[in-house]
Design a protein around this nucleic acid. Structure first.
Length: 522
RNA sequence: GCUCCCUUCGUCUAAUGGUUAGGACGCUGGCCUCUCACGUCGGUAAUAGGGGUUCGAAUCCCCUAGGGAGCACCA
């Protein structure tokens, strides 16, 4: 069973989760009555569904891994489409492949969607709970003569395929058992759908436009394996129909499956959904996104310090645009996004642009929001934020300086603890003998300072600079390297304020020691 | 191999037959400045190739090339 973050589960997962429980464990024969034969079947409606004319989109991942970037985008597009039109967004888990499906993957997918904030209105439904229903539809197709048992063995099919490939033909089933096939000893038959042999299937795809496929290109696909379990093309079609899905938004790797599914839908005399096939997302090398490309799991982006809003904004702009606008609020995305405007071409995932967007979101976010997430990343560095200054002050000081929350934690480390070594480059440039006097003067002035406020600190640095007749940079930079260890930090006054008086004086001493050592070393 | 989809700066995209082909990321030069960053002003860089149609093509048609997907008792 999924393990939820208590706080988040209350908000929007819980209702579906309860339904999931009741759906999985209830007496299905009572809960899900089926009616009639082919032609008179009316789609049944799952317990929480309302009117049949409600627009519905769905996300239907197979739980064989985490939620990846491509899946997240199609889920998001489906979600946006439903939200925009006041429809419902359905989550369905396609777990009929029992070899590869895992509970852990289901949880990973739900966790990913939760993090992104893609709450679903119905589901999650599990296909493994619906085998009775699939069996029923298959039987009806059989009764109607729209499907048949095929007794060809795997070996025979393999041979057939090889021969066809050798002849440079498209491999497909030859329809041997289509008429008058006899049961064979020791062969458990599969069930095939009798695909039309003539004519063409027309798909008016919202993204790809009109796509026409000749039925002569299609063969009689298997809808039930020899062990009786249904296959993908059958289950999607039955589910989309039963669940009242009106808009099928999915990856364009499914475009080639669509004509088969349409033929199946027609055989069941079901209403056809509207299709939208969105293109793939490619890695930086132009190849299909894979583990080689690093962070492909959406949860990895959380680990890496990205905000979910930034990731969604990036994904919506990947393949879609609204004039010159780059940054969109969630409301704007819902209002402006239109699946019809999605580009038909595959696009390359560009980490640099995502980083830029993430920084924009960090800059514009409420400090409280950032602080909440920053705490986690500080914790990973072994830092307890409560042992330092108010974390809101840290966020405000660093907000414009980090592309990710991980980076923000890293560049804030100096606030919480002394560093071990000076950055060699920075020390070489700034901790030189000429810096000795400014540092000593600063130390004295700071030691005497009672009011450790940003304003007072600013004045102090300025006064010391003026007294030495130096530009402020000549004083502030050595001081910065002394207390931060590096040449970059927030304004020197803010920096000192965050570090505190005691640590500041201690670190200046250390820097003076460093310079002395350097002089002696020659 | 066959079928389907796709092709504008390095990347994401705008331009629905008439624009000096626009914006954004990146890279880069200036400004701002105590550093870094933010911000700001500039620069760099594209219609895959070839044929048509048209007064006029990134845009419509055809061919070629390149990329992707599908052709499973996976989803």
């Amino acid at each position: 069973m999924p393990v939820w973050d208590e706080r988040e589960s209350e908000e929007f997962i819980s209702p579906q989760y309860n339904l999931h429980l009741s759906f999985r464990h209830a007496d299905r024969s009572a809960a899900l009555p089926f009616l009639g034969g082919i032609g008179t079947i009316t789609p049944f409606y799952l317990p929480n569904q309302e009117a049949t004319d409600t627009m519905r989109t769905r996300f239907a991942p197979s739980p064989t891994g985490y939620l990846h970037i491509g899946g997240a985008r199609t889920a998001f597009y489906s979600w946006l489409h439903a939200r925009k039109h006041g429809g419902r967004f359905v989550l369905r888990i396609e777990d009929t492949d029992r070899e590869r499906s895992t509970e852990a993957s289901v949880n990973a997918i739900l966790e990913g969607m939760t993090w992104l904030g893609l709450e679903y209105d119905e589901g999650p439904f599990f296909q493994t709970d619906r085998f009775d229903r699939y069996a029923e539809v298959i039987q009806q197709l059989l009764d109607k003569g729209l499907a048949y048992r095929c007794y060809c063995t795997r070996e025979e099919l393999d041979d057939l395929r090889e021969q066809q490939m050798a002849r440079k033909e498209k491999p497909r089933y030859n329809g041997k058992c289509r008429v008058g096939a006899q049961a064979r000893e020791g062969v458990e038959p599969v069930i095939r759908f009798k695909n039309p042999t003539e004519g063409a299937v027309v798909i008016d795809d919202l993204v790809k436009g009109r796509v026409v496929i000749q039925n002569s290109e299609l063969d009689d696909l298997i809808i039930a394996r020899s062990d009786g379990t249904p296959t993908y093309n059958l289950t999607v079609v039955v589910d989309d129909w039963d669940m009242g899905v009106t808009h099928v938004i999915r990856g364009d790797d499914h475009l080639n499956n669509t004509p088969r599914q349409i033929n199946l839908l027609r055989a069941m005399e079901a209403e056809l959904p509207i299709y939208a096939h969105v293109p793939m997302i490619l890695g930086e090398d132009g190849k299909r996104l894979s583990k080689r490309h690093g962070a492909v799991s959406v949860m990895q982006y959380r680990e890496d310090g990205f905000l979910p809003e930034a990731l969604l904004n990036y994904l919506v702009r990947l393949g879609w645009s609204h004039g010159d606008q780059e940054v969109f609020s969630m409301d704007e995305m819902i209002e402006l996004f239109d699946i019809k405007d999605v580009n038909g071409a595959a696009s390359i995932f560009n980490q640099e642009k995502l980083l830029w967007l993430n920084q924009q979101y960090i800059i514009n976010a409420e400090p409280e929001y950032i602080a909440h997430h920053l705490g986690i990343h500080l914790g990973k560095l072994g830092i307890d934020p409560s042992e330092g200054p108010d974390i809101l002050l840290v966020v405000k000081a660093q907000q414009e300086r980090a592309k990710t929350l991980v980076e923000m934690a890293q560049i804030s480390e100096f606030i919480y603890r002394d560093f071990d070594e000076f950055d060699p480059q920075a020390a070489k440039k700034h901790l030189r003998p000429v810096a000795q006097e400014p540092l000593e003067k600063m130390k004295a002035a700071l030691a005497a300072l009672e009011d450790w406020s940003i304003e007072a600190l600013h004045q102090t640095v300025q006064q010391v600079s003026e007294a030495l007749e130096l530009k402020m940079g000549k004083v502030a930079q050595p001081l910065r390297v002394a207390v931060v260890g590096r040449a970059a930090s927030p304004g020197i006054d803010e920096t000192l304020a965050l570090i505190g008086k005691e640590a500041t004086l201690r670190r200046i001493d250390k820097a003076l020691g460093f310079i002395l050592q350097r002089v002696q070393a020659g």
